[in-house]
Amino acid sequence: MPGVNRRIPAGLVSAVVVLLIWQVVGSVGPLAGDSFATASEAIVALIGLFADSQFWVAVFETLQMAVIGFALSMVIAVPLGLLIGLSRFTYRSTKFTFDFFKVIPPIVLIPIAILVIGPSIAMGIALAVFANVFAVAIQTAYGIRDTDPTLLETMRCYRMNAFQQIRYARLPSAAAQIAVATRLAATASLIVAVVAGLVGGAPGLGRLAALYQSAGTADRTYAVVLTLGILGLVTSRLIVRLQRRAVFWSGR
């Protein structure tokens, strides 16, 4: 059916299928009952939430934590990664520690964060920064170190100094790695911002979902989950698009 494929995006087909399965599982299947909402109930609830200012405030707060957390991570991690990557010694000695921190899920820091910062926007931001800064720094450092030695030797033959080598070879070369890290960090920031609310009581959609759940309004809880899915999808699409523009040569 080539004609159909051209008019209907493939992603939409699978989305509809998933919603249908959800609907069936929630109404006749194993999860039927009051504690679980069907797809149609969640969508109706979501439309209802559009008129609720509390919902929009939560969306804004979540985005605020995610965006600021993400931006801070980048501002800290890219220059840090650059410095680490400039020498083989600092790269090797830092990599071990950073890899260790990288795999610690930010959720385990929530008890400490609640004590030190309190359940606030600042806590969500801090957790997002912690979630990303090590991974992005290591990825940047890797990109800097991974610069093609042939390119650097060519520049040395043309008597280009260390600064010029960083500016014109190492940084652009690391850009492809930074771009990959950026995409991961953007979605991770969103997830962490939600978890901070869900588990740690920070404001935003996470806390809202927890509130709806404890109030027994499953349809609204799932409406929030749907919102998060949409936000995540839009974020990752947006980043991929920016990425293609920023490192247009990548993969050539």
Partner: peptide, 30 residues
């Protein structure tokens, strides 16, 4: 160190030219 007035051409042009710069900027870089 590299002497003044040295120019190089290497076998692997894909690795010695910069993919992020146009032909003009590649040539102008040195």
């Amino acid at each position: 160190g590299a002497p003044e007035g040295l120019a190089v051409v290497l076998q692997d042009y894909t690795r010695s030219l910069m993919p992020w710069l146009t032909v003009e900027r590649n040539i102008a870089l040195p």
